[in-house]
Write a protein that binds this DNA or RNA. Structure first.
Length: 204
DNA sequence: TTCAGGATGTACT
DNA sequence: GTACATCCTGAAC
């Protein structure tokens, strides 16, 4: 059950919350890489100084934020890392959910290769613990760059689904327990004045 | 486990 | 020219 346009065409904070526990699937080199989303943040241009498209600011970079809901917005940050977002709300409303963290569920070998250049079994405990707990790390592991900016999440190469059966896998029992959703201030946006205090970060 | 410092390129003023 | 929705390393504890 791939999430459709309607899922993304809602209030951004609701989408951010509802993405927790769901599976992000990236078909890379013919192989499905699947991760369970554990941390998200909402960004809403019409009212949020932390959003790249605050006050409907429209530039070459923010153009993707004005795309239809269910579009991937990927940008380069700090000169060397990429961040993956899902565009939300009706087309023309610049808003998105940043995917900040996840847990590996399938394709561990490829994820580890992309991220550290070695096999998953060769990773140190420290590397495993900090495998996908950051937006840049996630993009690195999933091989997502600006080349994928603007990609539709309704297609077959990058999408979100509720269970792993969709890609021929079993959903682990530990993923079936009720979600404990928390919220807090968003990370790394101290410059955003009053918006820095919005509790728009959601995590398990 | 925590912390400081550096890497790196682009978007925007 | 400045800031940035980050990550890694190495040193200190």
């Amino acid at each position: 059950m791939k999430l459709g346009r309607d899922f993304y065409d809602r209030d951004t904070r609701a989408v951010a919350r509802d993405l927790l526990g769901k599976y992000l699937v990236r078909v890379w080199d013919g192989v499905p890489l699947a991760v369970r989303i554990t941390e998200t943040e909402a960004y809403i241009g019409r009212m949020d100084k932390a959003c790249h498209a605050y006050n409907y600011r429209r530039t070459q970079r923010t153009e993707t934020l004005f795309a239809p809901p269910g579009t991937a917005y990927i940008y380069l940050i700090y000169g060397m890392h990429h961040c993956l977002n899902f565009v939300t709300e009706p087309e023309g409303e610049p808003a998105a959910v940043l995917i900040r963290g996840a847990q590996a569920r399938s394709g561990n070998g490829f994820l580890a290769r992309n991220r550290f250049g070695k096999a998953f079994d060769q990773l140190s405990p420290y590397q495993k613990k900090n495998f996908l707990n950051g937006p840049g790390k996630l993009c690195r592991a999933l091989a997502l760059t600006r080349a994928e900016n603007g990609l539709s999440l309704l297609g077959d190469t990058l999408f979100v689904c509720e269970d792993l059966e969709k890609i021929g896998l079993e959903t682990p029992p530990e993923d079936r327990v009720p979600l404990e959703i928390r919220s807090g201030k968003r990370i790394g946006i101290d410059y955003a004045e009053e918006a820095a205090d919005f509790l728009w970060r959601y995590y398990l």
